[in-house]
Simulated assay, not measured.
Amino acid sequence: MPTLADEFESHRPRLFGLAYRLLGSAQEAEDAVQDAYLRFSGADRAAIEHPAAWLAKAVTNLCLNRLTSARARREEYVGTWLPEPVVTSDGALGPLESAQRREQVSLAVLVLLERLTPTERAVYVLREAFGYGHREIADVLDLSEANCRQLYRRAAQRVAVTESRFEPAPERREELVTSFITAAREGDLAGLEKLLAADVTWWGDGGGKVSAARRPIEGREKVVRFLVGGSRRFGAGLEYTVVEINGASGLAAWADGTLVGVAEIELRDGRIAQVRAVTNPDKLEYVRRQLTRP
């Protein structure tokens, strides 16, 4: 017979995926899942008829409690706030076998979820990412089914993910990212101009801890100028690896073996349309552990 710990571990990946989508923070998601384990280990197991449902409810409520204080902290955040990046090629956020599933964990969508109230976000995530019916969501949140339907409609309207992200085959994605790394490192203006969409936007999150653009940089010319200047000031000595970040193409930057930045790269029509770069060291701990895991 499996132990309590064994039973919990069988649910941990799904619970982490739920908590991360609700919080936008891998480290806080880990904490919420651990708190759920403590509640699970102290509960009367005879009273838990369906452990998966019980744990999903526990994690959701723990995250709702955290979201209120998280929103207050983000209002005081220095510069652009982006979610903590996660490497998804190892299944950390569950199977992402479709473009829609990949889009739901993208940094862009997670930023959009910040527009929602905590309860709206919970309803939206349970419905969109985990396929819960409105009755199941009502049981998790202790709300009426009609209220959950209303909350979902409102959340879907506010998030309004209208443009589905299309990416080329994996080999082509890696080729584009590798070309981007080479052009940025060498300060190759012509190369960068070929790779970037005319309306490309660069988002940087340094959190006031390291140098980063505090406002979005919009347009090919401005982004090229920013990258060329950055390559001269900061690019020397950096090493880059191509990685899958939040279901999208991405890269990781290393300095003397230390992870110093991660970027999610959104491609559109064979060009780079959006770059979301996280260099705040406080947000790199989880992804660092992923990338350096034996």
Rank of each mutant, 00 (worst) to 15 (best):
P2F: 09
A5N: 07
F8T: 09
R12H: 01
G17Q: 06
Y20N: 10
Y20H: 09
Y20G: 07
L23D: 02
G24I: 08
S25C: 10
S25W: 07
E28T: 13
E28K: 11
E28S: 04
E28R: 12
D31C: 08
A32P: 01
V33P: 03
V33E: 03
D35N: 03
A36P: 00
R39K: 13
R39P: 01
R39Q: 12
G42L: 11
A43E: 08
D44R: 14
A46R: 14
I48V: 12
I48Y: 04
I48M: 06
P51I: 04
A52G: 05
A53M: 03
W54F: 10
A56W: 00
A56E: 05
K57V: 00
K57M: 04
N61K: 00
N61Q: 11
C63V: 04
L64D: 04
L64P: 03
N65C: 12
N65L: 10
R66S: 02
R66C: 01
R66V: 07
S69H: 09
A70H: 09
R71V: 13
R74P: 02
T80V: 13
V86Q: 08
S89N: 06
D90N: 06
D90K: 06
P95I: 04
E97R: 06
S98M: 01
R101W: 05
Q104A: 07
V105D: 03
L110A: 08
L113V: 00
R115V: 02
L116K: 04
T117H: 04
P118K: 01
R121E: 03
Y124P: 03
E128S: 04
E128G: 01
G131N: 09
N147R: 07
L151W: 02
Y152G: 02
A155I: 00
A156I: 06
V159L: 01
E163K: 14
E167H: 07
L176H: 08
V177C: 07
T178R: 08
T178V: 15
S179M: 14
S179W: 07
F180L: 12
I181C: 07
A183P: 06
E186Q: 14
D188G: 09
G191A: 08
L192T: 09
K194W: 12
L195I: 14
A198H: 14
G204L: 12
G206A: 14
K209R: 15
V210I: 12
R214K: 15
P216N: 14
P216S: 12
V223W: 05
V223N: 03
V223I: 15
V224T: 10
F226V: 13
V228D: 08
G230Y: 10
F234P: 13
G235N: 09
T241V: 11
E244G: 05
E244Q: 05
G247S: 01
G247K: 00
L251C: 12
G257Q: 07
G257I: 07
V262E: 00
A263V: 11
R268P: 13
R276P: 03
V278P: 04
T279I: 15
P281R: 11
D282C: 09
D282Q: 10
K283N: 11
Y286W: 14
T292P: 01
T292E: 08
R293P: 07
